[in-house]
């Protein structure tokens, strides 16, 4: 990708062919830190490199391949395809995350993917708080041929979830995609509200919500780890989507998150258009962090 080019230059500047020493390792660690891996994860990668190659002659290419391979090892187990459990219909997908992380847009993009794959969907405007959140989702519904259920701004999102489920079942929809208001994970009452939405959905179907997706903004730094910790704990997040990878941020925090939680990463958001949602490929992601395209 175009955004990894500066990283490539960085590494090329560090290396032509020279002995792997402390200074070089520090420079490599710095490159990983600049991709938001965090100190500890970056050090894990460079420590491995040191234990195998310290004092040996290494080329630029070799080192990058090594770093990419190390990162790929962490990411491979989390690369997964989103599977729908159609024994339980509607399959309920709840999308959660902090403010502005890309929940509503990701639902729009997913809705299109599901439509293309021949599934019938119902979008649920569960953000009953933010101005025009409902209108925003309705436009995504129009774009992707999906009906949208909503209630006026200020309504109870859990009540909406309950009724929307009824509607989805009556209409025989395969998938119900529910948007939620953005919330910071440290806000107790907002997290309680999320818990309530889930509780109410379970009254309809004890196995719901089947998929709880957390959207993570790639420009976010170390706080993304807290986001996963808490949303997983409170809302039972069982899948991740990383958005905004079309900018210059590398999203390296995903390496730390994957090492810690092993949550599947289903998609990457790479733009604002309906088809800017790509499957997560561990190898590509790792190589881009290491400055290899």
């Amino acid at each position: 990708t175009r955004s990894s080019s500066s990283l490539t230059e960085n590494i090329t500047a560090v290396f032509t062919k020279r002995k792997l020493d402390e200074d070089t390792l520090q420079e490599l660690e710095d490159i990983l830190i600049q991709a938001d891996l965090g100190v500890e994860t970056a050090m894990n990668v460079t420590d491995k490199l040191a234990s195998q190659r310290m004092g040996k002659d290494v080329s630029d290419e070799e080192v990058r391949e090594f770093m990419a391979a190390e990162i790929e090892t962490v990411l491979t187990p989390v690369a997964a395809e989103l599977e729908l459990d159609l024994d339980h219909t509607p399959h309920v997908i709840l999308v959660v995350g902090v403010n502005g992380s890309g929940k509503t847009t990701t639902i729009g993009k997913l809705s299109q993917k599901l439509y293309d794959a021949g599934f019938s969907t119902l979008l649920v405007a569960g953000d009953t708080f933010r101005a025009a959140a409902i209108e925003q989702l309705k436009i995504w519904g129009e774009r992707t041929q999906s009906p949208v259920v909503s209630r006026p701004l200020g309504s109870d999102a859990a009540g909406l979830a309950f009724d929307a489920y009824d509607q989805a079942r009556e209409e025989g929809r395969d998938v119900m995609l529910m948007d939620t208001a953005g919330r910071l994970q440290n806000k107790k009452e907002l997290m309680d509200e999320l818990e309530k939405i889930i509780r109410v959905l379970r009254k309809q179907d004890p196995t719901a919500p089947h998929t709880v997706l957390l959207t993570l903004d790639a420009t976010t730094g170390q706080n993304a780890v807290n986001q996963v910790d808490i949303f997983k704990d409170v809302a039972g997040v069982n899948g991740l989507v990383m958005t905004k990878l079309d900018g210059t941020a590398r999203g390296g925090i995903l390496v730390a998150i994957s090492a810690k939680h092993q949550l599947p990463v289903y998609f990457l958001g790479v733009g604002e258009s309906v088809d800017d949602l790509e499957p997560f490929e561990a190898r590509d992601f790792a190589r881009s962090i290491a400055g290899l395209s």
């Binding site: 830190i33 938001d36 903004d217 420009t219 730094g221 993304a224 900018g247 210059t248 941020a249 925090i253």
Partner: peptide, 12 residues
């Protein structure tokens, strides 16, 4: 700008 931004803050 978001106060949760990571290393990309300088670039942006």
């Amino acid at each position: 700008a978001d106060s949760l931004t990571g290393q990309d803050a300088v670039n942006l």
